[in-house]
Nucleic acid binder design. Sequence first.
DNA 1: TGACGCGAAAGATATCATCTTTAATATCTT
DNA 2: AAGATATTAAAGATGATATCTTTCGCGTCA
Lengths: 254, 254
Amino acid sequence: MATVHPLFKDEKWRPPASSGAATLSAQIVASVREALFEGTLKPSDFLGTEKEIAARFGVSRIVARDAFRTLQALGVIEIKVGAKGGARVARGDPRLFADALAIQLGLAGISVREILDAQRAVECLAAELAAEHATTADLSKLRGLLAQAASTLGDSAAFTRSSLEFHLAVAEASGNRVLVAQLQSLQYVSWPQRNRTLTRTVAKHILDVHGELVDLIEARDAKAARQLMDDHVKMIRARRVAERGERGHDEACC
Amino acid sequence: MATVHPLFKDEKWRPPASSGAATLSAQIVASVREALFEGTLKPSDFLGTEKEIAARFGVSRIVARDAFRTLQALGVIEIKVGAKGGARVARGDPRLFADALAIQLGLAGISVREILDAQRAVECLAAELAAEHATTADLSKLRGLLAQAASTLGDSAAFTRSSLEFHLAVAEASGNRVLVAQLQSLQYVSWPQRNRTLTRTVAKHILDVHGELVDLIEARDAKAARQLMDDHVKMIRARRVAERGERGHDEACC
DNA sequence: TGACGCGAAAGATATCATCTTTAATATCTT
DNA sequence: AAGATATTAAAGATGATATCTTTCGCGTCA
């Protein structure tokens, strides 16, 4: 483990005949990406320092620097400064990716309705799989979040926060990291900034549904868990779409 | 439209008191991101040239360049060289994002099983929404892809390609761009490299299911469309998980 | 434990190369 | 001769290189 990839060991490197990449740094980025997909470059592998990469590809340090910036932004490498520093292949960071998605969805002008629909797909499957795979640790975490939410029934901001955490914990209980990453992204986009219509009555209702959901997960009733989550998300979606017609990325909850 | 954001007009700029960003370029990136989320910076807005940004933030061109590289990698800006060049806020590019997710999932070592489960969630909702929202244009595109797949029953590689396109077209017919982006990402990760078990008989069966699905979408039967897609994807998943236990990102299809 | 030094990225400055737009100029056509 | 078109020149911007100083992390040695 933590070896050096051959590509980054060889003394010389020739650009491919049909180098589609326009800039030199893009060619370096492409090389790394290829090695990644090919599986010859794995997390925690050492890529080299700026000077080394520059020498390897026969370019200046700035070009290597540009490539590092790009790869860093993509979450592919981590860069350490100082002795024994340099670039190393990173372990994937779901949060970094969630950020990127949030920006992309914002730029594309995705509507709240689309986001909530996608969220429904993710959350329903999460509930279903959680009922099948939840460990006792998952369940106790869910119960803990329930208690926390119950203690903040009055504070709508705090209640919303712990509700979001609850939904994320359900996804984690599914044992599927893709679902967790997707849900994080979508929650981030539709992050609540104000909670106008979250009355104590509504909060109590939400808390009841959440409790019922944990019971179904513990009972391993996947079908019912899925159905309950579906109704729950549909309700949220209906409320939010009614509140604000399509525009704006405010207010998500639960 | 295409205005210049105030932040990038002012003559000076002071870093926030609690500048969490370690590097100067990261501070610039953070500024742009904030402006994006705040909505004061919109697609096709002009950000400025390297020299302008450098002057604005009181740093060297290298720093501005680093920030540009990062924002470019995130798909936030497009950079043009030459007179009247510089950085401009990009329209979101779903493919770029799909790439990023693919890399992240690869780095995190996500199993095929997890990917296929997530794909099931996305595709089922896509089928359901397609039945509700598909336009005549969507339907004719789906029919076209069916015909194309039928003509390539013998060529397993070509058949797989058009099958993937079919599934993507279903997502597009749903009218939900989030689903399209998610499906693209997942397909990219589990891209087929070899198709060992795709016999003509299996291909014919898949084609039949796809045809039935289009019929259900045309009939606006959302519930049935969802159920059919669910069974379909479950079948695919079962076959692929059986083929290779967990490891490796080869072979997806349909 | 602390101070020192080394290695590496972070950042600055200057310079050249390359590309793109714009405009001025030259040439061709009618 | 006037207008349309092709050519060329200049300006402005990124791409790329070289060299330098500063800052930061790590290991070593006292």
